[in-house]
Every structure is written in structure tokens, then in C-alpha cells.
Simulated scan of single mutants.
Amino acid sequence: MGVFTYETEVTSFIPPSKMFKAFVLDVDLLGGPLPNIVPLPQAIKNVEILEGDGGPGTIKKITFGVDSKFKYLKHKIEGIDKENFTYSYSVIEGDALMDTLEKISYEIKLTPSPNGGSICKSTCKYHTKGDIEIKEDEIKGSKERASGLFKVVESYLLANPDTYN
């Protein structure tokens, strides 16, 4: 098994506490405070908790919508620290693993930025089966999707400044 790692850093005008709540804790609540930030019926059909209470060990199943190239994935929350704005989880099942990956692990940390906003640093590790190599365009696409979602949430919060006050 090989491990391919990449890191991403994205800045935001939103403070870490507010961004963590929206980007990490509430992003998969389809009817929650972030409605319509992504065309949800096309992007995500539903999210269900299969096991756990939302903390470490929780397993979620995300079923994608008609516009996704994947049908579903399951992810397991490895760690969550609401006070230090850190979150880690692993994709453990689903067609997003493409029969070439054992799992994909993510670690996210939000820290304050000098302008009063936040910096999101994330680390992604692809755990491959055998000697399979991850192509650069796959990594680039994953980075773009993650950064894009972060920016969509930021835009929503900028347009709705009373959210999470």
C-alpha cells in the first residue's frame, strides 16, 4: 500500500469559529442554515448517520445527486475539536474510492488570520491498494472541489452575516 499526501491552504474573511460551524459542523445539513448554497439535489441527494452521534467514530453515508460522477460514499469521523477548530475523517467506502484506494484521510484545521478571518489548512492522504499511483489531475480535481466548497460556504456567510451570531 502506498500513501500519497497533499496539502491545501485557503484563506477566508470569515472568523474560524463561524467558518468551522458552517464548513465542518453544518455543511451536510440539507435543510439546515445553509440551504441552497450548492444546488443540493444535483450535488448531494442526502446524508444519513449510519452509526454514532456526530462525534468520533460516527459513520455517515452521503448519497450524491444526478450531477455527480459518484453514487455514494461513507465517511468515518476520526476526530473533532470544536474549541481548536480541527476535524479529521476518512472516506472508507464507496465508488469514490474507485477500486484503487483503501481509504482517503482528511485533516482540516482553521486558524485565525491577521485580517480577522481564517486560514483553512487541510491535508489529504490517499491510501492506495498495491502499487497504484495517484495521477496529478486527480489530486488537482480534489483540491479544486474542496477549495470550491469552502469558497461557496464563505460566500454564503458573507451574504448572510447574521448566520451563526
Rank of each mutant, 00 (worst) to 15 (best):
M1N: 01
M1W: 06
M1E: 05
G2W: 06
V3K: 07
V3C: 11
F4W: 02
T5M: 01
Y6D: 13
E7N: 11
E7V: 08
T8S: 15
F13Y: 07
I14T: 14
P15W: 00
P16S: 12
M19G: 01
M19N: 01
F20I: 02
F20P: 05
A22R: 04
A22M: 09
A22F: 03
F23P: 11
V24A: 03
V24R: 03
D26F: 00
D26M: 04
L30M: 05
G31W: 12
G32Y: 01
G32R: 08
P33A: 14
P33F: 01
P35I: 10
N36S: 10
N36T: 09
I37Q: 10
P41Y: 00
P41G: 04
I44A: 00
N46V: 04
N46H: 06
E48F: 04
E48Q: 05
E48A: 13
E51N: 12
G52L: 01
P56T: 07
P56S: 02
G57C: 10
K60S: 05
I62F: 02
T63D: 05
G65Y: 03
G65E: 00
V66T: 12
D67I: 00
K69D: 05
K69W: 02
K71R: 13
E78P: 01
I80C: 02
D81Y: 07
D81R: 04
K82E: 13
F85C: 00
Y89W: 03
V91N: 04
D95T: 11
M98I: 06
I108H: 11
K109V: 14
K109T: 15
L110N: 10
L110F: 04
N115S: 13
N115Q: 13
G116D: 11
G116Q: 08
G116R: 07
I119D: 01
I119E: 11
C120W: 03
C120L: 14
C124V: 15
H127C: 04
G130A: 03
I134Y: 05
I134Q: 02
E136K: 12
D137K: 13
K140Q: 14
G141R: 09
S142D: 15
K143I: 00
E144L: 15
R145W: 09
A146T: 14
L149N: 10
F150M: 08
K151M: 02
K151E: 10
V152S: 10
V152A: 14
V153H: 10
E154N: 06
Y156F: 15
L157C: 01
L157R: 01
L158M: 06
A159D: 11
N160Q: 03
N160D: 06
P161W: 05
D162P: 10
D162N: 13
T163G: 07
Y164I: 04
N165C: 11
N165M: 03
